[in-house]
Structures are given as C-alpha cells and as structure tokens.
C-alpha cells in the first residue's frame, strides 16, 4: 500500500529533534512512527503521521525543509524468511530499496515495513 511519509532535514545538534516534535505537537499531529537517518553533521527525520500535509506545512513555516514523499507500506508475515521473500520480489523486478524501517503497530498484527524506492510505481506493482 502506498502511504505518505514526512521527511525533514535536520542538523545533528542537540535540541533540533525536540523542535520538530514541538512543532508537530503544536499542529496537533500524532506521530505513528519516527526514525532518523544521520551522518556526522546532519540527518533526515522520517515520520509517518496522521496528518501529513498539515505536518509538512507546520514544519515549513517553522523554518524546516520538510517534504512529503510516497513510500510503500508492506505487510510482512511474522515468520522466518518472510522479509526475504518481499526483498527477493523487489530484487527480481530490478528494484533497489533506498531505505526501510518498521512501522510501529499497536496490536499483535503482522509487522509492516515502510520501504522507499526510486520508482514507487514499479515497486507498488511488484510488491502490491
């Protein structure tokens, strides 16, 4: 399933992530999952939230670079080799995973992986 993800450019310094969260809180945005990819000096905060467009607008007006990007949410069965079969399908279609992380799920349902691809349309076709 194609979902919207929020991506925010962030300097790797104390307090900056707080400011992002503060901005989201003020905009009444609930965070479902949040993850950070970082280098020594900067990083990208990626989040799945309930109101993506509002969140992006709020962050932009607070002075951040914020972007809404399409990613795939792929349900993976809770058994050995399940993720492998998903990845194998992607790889067979010549698709490279740019990054991925697990979506936090409150219940005992199957895990859901958030996966980013360069060609999201092809990925959606291959992984559904």
């Amino acid at each position: 399933m194609r979902i919207k993800q929020l991506s925010v450019f962030l300097e790797n310094t104390p307090g900056h992530l707080c400011k992002v969260c503060q901005t989201l809180k003020s905009a009444g945005v609930n965070i479902l999952t949040i993850t950070i990819a970082e280098t020594k000096e900067y990083g990208i905060v990626r989040a799945v939230v309930d109101k993506t467009e509002e969140a992006a607008a709020a962050l932009k007006s607070a002075g951040f670079f914020a972007k809404v990007v399409d990613v795939l949410a792929v349900e993976v069965e809770d058994r050995p080799g399940a993720l492998l079969s998903v990845l194998a399908r992607a790889s067979d279609s010549g698709l490279n995973v740019e990054y991925m992380y697990a979506l936090t799920r409150p219940n005992n349902e199957n895990p859901v992986m958030v996966m980013a691809f360069k060609d999201i349309d092809a990925a959606e076709k291959a992984l559904g």
Partner: peptide, 9 residues
C-alpha cells in the same frame, strides 16, 4: 532537498 542521504552527500 531530496529524501536521500546519498544525494545530500
């Protein structure tokens, strides 16, 4: 600003 660390690099 792209959602990609390699691109930033």
């Amino acid at each position: 600003f792209a959602d990609s660390l390699p691109q930033l690099d």
